[in-house]
Each structure stands twice: as C-alpha cells, then as structure tokens.
C-alpha cells in the first residue's frame, strides 16, 4: 500500500495495440497540472518573491527555529517508537497464529482511516489530567497533553501503519531455508535475527521509518488538539505557517511552507533511493 510503485520494475518502450493512450495520458496530465502542479508552482513563485535575505531572516528567526526544533525532535521520538512497535507488530502478524490475529491486522489501518482531528480529540481526552492515561501519569508527575510528549504521541499514532505495512510483505516472503541453514550451522536465534533476518528486512524497515518520519513532520490535525500550541515550546512548523497566514504575513507563510516542502522532497528522495536499493537487492536474489 505504501509507495508501492517503487517496487515495480518499469519496462522499456514497447508499442501497444491498446487504444486510448492519448486520451488517458491527456486527462491524467491535465488533472495533475490543475490540481497538483498549479498550487505547488504558485507556492514556489510566492516564495521566490520573498527574496533571499528576507527568506533567511524568516527561517532563522528564533520562533521559526524553535518550531523546527520541536517538530524534528518530536517526529524523531514518534518514529523511534513506531520503528520498534511496527517491527514487533509485523513480526507477530506474520510469524505467529493466535485468536484475533485478523482483527489486529485490520486495526493497524485505523490511523489511516480515522480523521486526524478525531484522533487528536481522542488522544487529548485520554491524556488530559483526569483522562484514562493522564490521571495515572499525573501521579508520576508526567504531563503529556499540552507538552512536547503529547505532540510525539499524536505523531506516533498517525504514522503507526507505515513500518508495519512495509515490513510485513518482506517478512512474509522471507525463505525459511536461510534460517534453517544458519541454525544447522549452530547460530543462536539472536544471531540469526541479527545476521540473516534483519539485514533482509532492513531496506523495507528503513523505507517505512522514513515514511513515518515524513508524515510526522507534516502532521497537523492531530497535533493542534494536544499540543497546547505555545510558541517556543509546543508550536510545530505546520502550525506556525498557519498562524502566519492568519496574521496576513504571506511572505513568512510562504517561506515556512516552502521549507517544509523542501524537507518533504528530501524525505521522498531518501525513500525512493532506499526502494531502488531494495529492488536491486531482491531482483539480485531471484
């Protein structure tokens, strides 16, 4: 389901007897141009208007820098959680049989299907001072809602499926013979996991974690509910762009948005490189 295109080898030009190429290509390109490319170009034009010196001043202002720091730190924490939980979840779903397994598999997609505003509302209520999680945590003096930890929780929730859904198919296709061979040679379970299984999963795992990180960086709906949105402390980049718009500071909104866009492109590039590597890896094995 995730960036699945990268996994399909696209062949070289071949003539097709099937009609409709011009029509379908024309429709596709027109739609993409109007719906996707036009707004992105408008954003790029607008940010080009800002000018380099002003752009640097906006991006390096203490409040913007603080928001980037908060966003990257919480997204990293969320990704770390999902890397561990996602790998364990994928492992349990592929390797073990237990009652409710198919239900668990279906539950993994909840964060994709549930609107982010609903997720934000639910998480904020859970972590509120008198909430199911908030009350016990308050006794330990831990505050999650209206703190950076809350942002990390919201980001973690919305990006749960990425690692699971990228690792799962690779784990399913893993050949038992490799493990058996390692076992007959006397390797322990931990050693086999480290030297045989994990290296095979690694490209998919890394791609899934990168997608989760990218999604966390851009997450807005779930975060604004739980963050408290205090400048310098719990204000994420996406929210700062939104605030600048509301203040009619279009230059600052454009500068911040285009920076976030550039980060998204870099993440996309990273994921594609990993997948190209993965594809070479698997094609080489066949």
């Amino acid at each position: 389901m995730l960036s699945s295109f990268g996994f399909f080898p696209l062949g070289r030009t071949r003539r097709s007897v099937i009609p409709g190429f011009r029509l379908s290509l024309g429709l596709t390109l027109t739609y993409l141009a109007l719906i996707v490319l036009l707004p992105i170009c408008a954003l790029l034009l607008k940010s080009a208007d800002v000018g380099f010196a002003r752009y640097i001043a906006i991006i390096t202002s203490p409040r913007t820098l603080a928001s980037f720091q908060v966003t990257f730190a919480t997204a990293a924490a969320a990704t770390l959680f999902n890397a561990v939980y996602g790998l364990a979840l994928a492992w349990v779903l592929v390797r073990y049989d237990f009652p409710g397994k198919r239900l668990l598999d279906a539950l993994v997609d909840v964060p994709f299907a549930l609107p982010t505003a609903v997720a934000g509302l639910a998480l904020t209520t859970l972590f509120a001072k008198n909430g199911w999680f908030g009350a016990p945590l308050a006794q330990w003096g831990i505050q999650v809602a209206y703190a950076p930890a809350g942002i990390a929780c919201a980001m973690a929730f919305t990006s749960i499926p990425f690692v699971v859904r990228t690792v799962q198919p690779v784990l399913e296709d893993l050949e038992p013979e490799l493990e058996e061979a390692a076992a007959t040679l006397g390797a322990t379970d931990a050693r086999i996991f480290r030297s045989v299984i994990f290296p095979a999963l690694f490209p998919a795992f890394l791609a899934g974690a990168s997608l989760a990180f990218a999604r966390s960086l851009g997450e807005f709906g779930a975060v604004v509910f739980i963050a408290g949105n205090q400048p310098f402390r719990t204000e994420i980049v996406a929210l700062l762009a939104y605030i600048r718009l509301e203040e009619y500071d279009y230059a600052a909104a454009a500068a911040i948005a285009v920076t976030l866009l550039a980060v998204a492109f870099v993440m996309l590039l990273v994921v594609n490189i990993i997948q190209a590597w993965h594809q070479r890896h698997t094609v080489g094995e066949d």
Partner: peptide
C-alpha cells in the same frame, strides 16, 4: 502503455501523499 517518463508520472501522482496538508492549503491560497 510504456512510454518515457512513466516513472516520473507515477512519482507525480504520489506527490500529494508526501506533502503536508497545511502546505497544500497554503499553496491553494496562493
């Protein structure tokens, strides 16, 4: 069909997934 630029077209189709909805909103405003 097979044609040059097919991978690029697919990447373009997937682009909205990689872009924060806030950026999309800001872009439409512009």
């Amino acid at each position: 069909f097979t044609f040059p630029g097919r991978s690029l077209l697919l990447a373009l189709v997937e682009l909205p997934f990689s872009i924060s909805p806030i950026i999309a909103g800001v872009a439409y405003l512009f």
